[in-house]
Computed example of a mutant assay.
Amino acid sequence: MQNALFVGVSSQVALQRELDVIANNMANISTNGFKGRASRFQEYLMPVASADSFSRPDRRLSYVIDQGTTLDLGQGPIEQTGNPLDVAVKGPAFIAVQGPAGERYTRNGAFSLNAQGQLVTSDGYPVAGDGGPITVNPQETGLSIGPDGTVSTNLGIRGRIKLVTFANPGALVNDGGNLYSSTAPARPAGLDGRLEAGALERSNVSPVLEMTRLMDVNRSYAMVTSMISRMDELRGTAISKLANVA
């Protein structure tokens, strides 16, 4: 009976974690370049939860272990904006930016120019170029961004946006502000990443799918809660009857 309660609690912890992931996905449905995540779980067989001395030996117990989340790298829909500073990333590449704690990576291509003329993200972080931050003087006109990330004005090429890929992009870690960090080295994207100017990539989260997942998880959580409640009542009844044995 006690083991059943432990199994139920482990399931509730896993379901709560999945609810958090779904809630974060739904909160970022309108976030440019956002990539959804999915929970990943694993069965754990308790090796010592058995009693082989009984005539009918106990079965080994299965618990739920939270194995983290996986990153959905599917392409989000591309929406035309007409803004020459907006870029949508096509393919598995990421845009490198100079974050507060070093180089970070994003798919959000909603750029602008700061007071120093630097190309920056919507959070004000400088976009990394092959030779450092990309700077445009106020007097320059005709700014355009090519498919390979080349930034040009009427005075010529001003730099090229640094596009990178990773051997295992699923290992990227969310670092806040729609940025990712990685312990593995980034490599030049080459033909694996192209930019479309005047457009933005929207979130790849499907609202309908997330709502379906939310209902399934809520239903499962309610079932486990009901099972735990019944087991607790059964234990109370057993204790009460055993206490009345003469």
Score class of each variant (00 low, 15 high):
Q2F: 15
N3S: 11
L5T: 05
F6P: 01
F6Q: 09
G8A: 07
V9S: 09
S11Y: 06
V13Q: 15
A14L: 02
A14S: 11
L15G: 00
R17I: 00
E18W: 12
E18M: 13
L19P: 01
V21C: 10
A23N: 08
N24D: 12
N25S: 12
N25Q: 13
A27Q: 12
N28H: 12
S30A: 11
N32Y: 08
F34C: 09
K35F: 01
K35C: 03
R37K: 10
S39L: 03
R40L: 01
Y44P: 02
P47Q: 15
V48H: 14
V48D: 14
S50V: 14
A51F: 15
S53A: 14
F54N: 07
S55P: 02
R56M: 07
D58G: 07
R60G: 09
Y63S: 06
V64Q: 12
D66E: 12
G68R: 13
T69A: 11
T70I: 05
D72N: 13
L73E: 01
L73G: 03
G76V: 10
Q80L: 00
T81P: 06
T81A: 04
T81K: 09
V87E: 03
V89G: 13
Q98N: 10
Q98F: 06
G99S: 13
P100N: 13
E103L: 08
T106S: 10
T106F: 10
A115G: 02
G117Y: 12
L119H: 06
T121D: 07
D123K: 10
P126Y: 09
G131N: 14
P133G: 05
I134Y: 04
I134W: 03
V136A: 08
N137C: 00
Q139P: 02
G146W: 09
G149A: 06
S152W: 06
N154W: 03
N154I: 00
L155R: 14
G156L: 06
R158W: 00
R160P: 02
I161S: 02
I161R: 09
I161V: 13
K162P: 04
K162R: 15
T165E: 02
T165M: 08
F166T: 06
G170P: 05
L172V: 09
L172D: 09
D175I: 01
N178W: 09
L179F: 07
Y180E: 02
Y180K: 08
T183Q: 15
T183H: 13
R187I: 03
A189S: 11
G190P: 07
G190N: 08
G193P: 05
G193M: 02
R194G: 05
R194W: 07
L195I: 00
L195T: 00
E196Y: 01
G198Q: 04
A199R: 09
A199L: 03
E201F: 01
R202C: 00
V208Y: 12
L209R: 15
L214M: 14
L214S: 10
L214C: 06
M215H: 10
M215T: 11
D216A: 04
V217P: 00
Y221R: 14
V224D: 05
T225N: 12
S226A: 14
I228V: 15
S229W: 04
M231A: 08
E233D: 08
T237L: 14
S240Y: 13
L242C: 05
A246R: 15
